[in-house]
């Protein structure tokens, strides 16, 4: 298959985005707004988004950012830490694995109602829900990654007489990154969904909450503007994770084929 020059790709990419925005602006509203205004054209939505980002940065945007960063941060750290421990203790891993797989298969959003009863509202709820709901991909991936480190790497470390703990951080963890980082991306995806849902159901601040408010007061522009803001946040977070992955996982030719 041929490859395109970077300039061509840039151009085409811009073209794609431009066409999509044009559709949003000129084609979608007339089609859908037949009975009542339900879709805001792109310019309106963008205006609302800019509004939110400027005037309401502290009231609306910051709580959400705080929650996602703290929630995801805890999920990631806990997930990797527990994964390292479990990956190194085979019998423990085998024992807890069925229950963890079960928890991983449970739709994460379903814990929100009882979490509201237990944790209350606003940030404790949202963060708690993010952690309990989204930790599983990174936890399970880390466990697998650490347990399946290439045995000869461990031999190399043993011959060099490197202490066990040091081996964990200088050999097992780097060797496991091709599996751990995609797990982090899945965790982030889940975390975002949980943050927004949590805010919509159990918070009185943040983007999720303001989206619900906007819809209930028929503020169309804001309903779509909020989506744009969340898109930007999601996009930035994804870019950070992908660049991490690119930086640390390039050495694994197998991982390079990973689309997700």
């Amino acid at each position: 298959m041929k490859t395109l020059a970077p300039s061509q790709r840039l151009l085409l990419g811009f073209g794609g985005v431009a066409v999509a925005l044009l559709l949003w602006q000129f084609v979608l509203p007339p089609i859908l707004n037949t009975r009542a205004p339900v879709v805001a054209p792109f310019t309106q939505a963008a205006g609302a988004a800019i509004d939110i980002l400027t005037t309401e940065l502290l009231d609306t945007v910051w709580p959400s950012i705080l929650r996602i960063l703290v929630g995801f941060g805890i999920s990631a750290l806990l997930g990797v830490a527990i994964g390292m421990v479990l990956g190194s203790i085979p019998w423990l891993q085998r024992l807890v694995r069925p229950v963890f797989d079960f928890l991983r298969a449970t739709p994460a959003t379903i814990i929100i109602p009882v979490a509201i009863a237990f944790l209350g509202l606003n940030s404790p709820l949202v963060i708690g829900v993010i952690v309990f709901g989204s930790i599983w991909p990174v936890l399970i991936n880390t466990t697998d990654a650490i347990a399946r480190v290439e045995p000869q790497y461990l031999d190399v470390a043993r011959v060099a007489r490197v202490a066990r703990l040091r081996t964990m951080f200088t050999v097992k963890l780097p060797a496991g990154l091709p599996l751990i980082l995609p797990g982090l991306r899945l965790t982030m995806q889940l975390a975002l969904v949980l943050m927004v849902t949590g805010e919509m159901l159990g918070a009185s601040s943040g983007l999720g909450f303001s989206l619900v408010q906007a819809q209930q007061s028929f503020d169309i522009a804001r309903t779509y503007g909020g989506i744009i803001v969340l898109s930007i946040i999601g996009f930035l977070l994804d870019v950070i994770l992908v660049s991490l992955e690119k930086k640390y996982v390039r050495y694994d030719s197998r991982a390079g084929k990973n689309a997700l």
Binding site: V196, M200, G208, V212, A214, S231, F235
Partner: peptide, 10 residues
Amino acid sequence: STPAVAFVPA
């Protein structure tokens, strides 16, 4: 990278 639930109100 947009969380799908953001589209619920819309």
